[in-house]
């Protein structure tokens, strides 16, 4: 499975060297509104990335405190998945803004850029947006319900306020919707010249 514009993968080599090795083929032009939207999504995604480091610290702390002091707390264990869950949920739209969700490129990479844009256009309208609409329609009440019922962990000493993590889920879907619309603008910029594509290839910072 290869990626259309960048070598992402569970397996993607990190950092700039890889993007230099494989220059993105047929990158979409930016537009004024999508550039601003993407910038926000990227800031959120990058901020969420630091949660990995916090999680590493938490786990290291949990292991050390268990073996040195014989203590362990359920809340600390639960905090780990709260953080990890929030990080990847918020990372979904960042990854979409950078177009690093995996694609099967066998046929795709042989198509002309304009044909690829039409596929992207149809895909966003008929696959991605309907899916996100359903997800939003279901995840928002799900988060509200957790707030209404005052849901907390089943473990007596576990964390309370489940609505926070469940809201991250709803927020993630909303951000994905925004990211999808932003990408749609970049596609329509190529296909219909609406909104106006930005003249210089504006590089979005990974």
């Amino acid at each position: 499975m290869a990626n259309g514009s960048a070598p992402a993968g569970p397996d993607a080599p990190p950092g700039p060297p890889s993007s230099e090795r494989m220059p993105p083929a047929g990158t979409l032009p930016q537009t004024a509104p999508s550039l601003r939207i993407d910038a926000v999504l990227i800031v959120i995604g990058k901020a969420a990335s630091w949660l990995w480091l916090v999680t590493v610290g938490l786990i290291a702390w949990a292991v050390v405190s268990r073996y040195l002091f014989g203590t362990s707390t359920i809340a600390l264990d639960e905090l780990q998945w709260h953080l990890v869950g929030s990080a990847w949920l918020l990372g979904l739209s960042y990854t979409l803004a950078l177009d690093e969700h995996v694609r099967v490129d066998v046929i795709h990479e042989r198509l002309r850029p304009r044909a690829r844009c039409w596929i992207e256009f149809a895909g966003i309208l008929l696959l991605l947006l309907p899916f996100l609409a359903v997800a939003a329609h279901e995840t928002i009440p799900f988060a509200l319900e957790a707030y209404r019922s005052g849901e907390r962990s089943t473990a007596p000493a576990g964390l309370g306020h489940r609505w926070i993590a469940k809201s991250a889920m709803a927020l993630s879907v909303l951000l994905l919707l925004v990211a999808a619309l932003s990408r749609l603008m970049r596609v329509t910029a190529v296909l219909f010249g609406m909104p106006r594509p930005l003249p210089i290839e504006t590089r979005t910072d990974r």
Binding site: A8, P10, P14, G45, S49, W50, G91, E100
Partner: peptide, 25 residues
């Protein structure tokens, strides 16, 4: 280096969990 590694982790993890999302549906 740390920043790059953290961001790369997010993109990789997010794309795997993106498939989780689609696959669970």
């Amino acid at each position: 280096v740390l920043r790059r590694s953290l961001y790369a982790t997010t993109r990789t993890t997010a794309f795997i969990f993106g498939i989780f999302l689609g696959a669970t549906a």
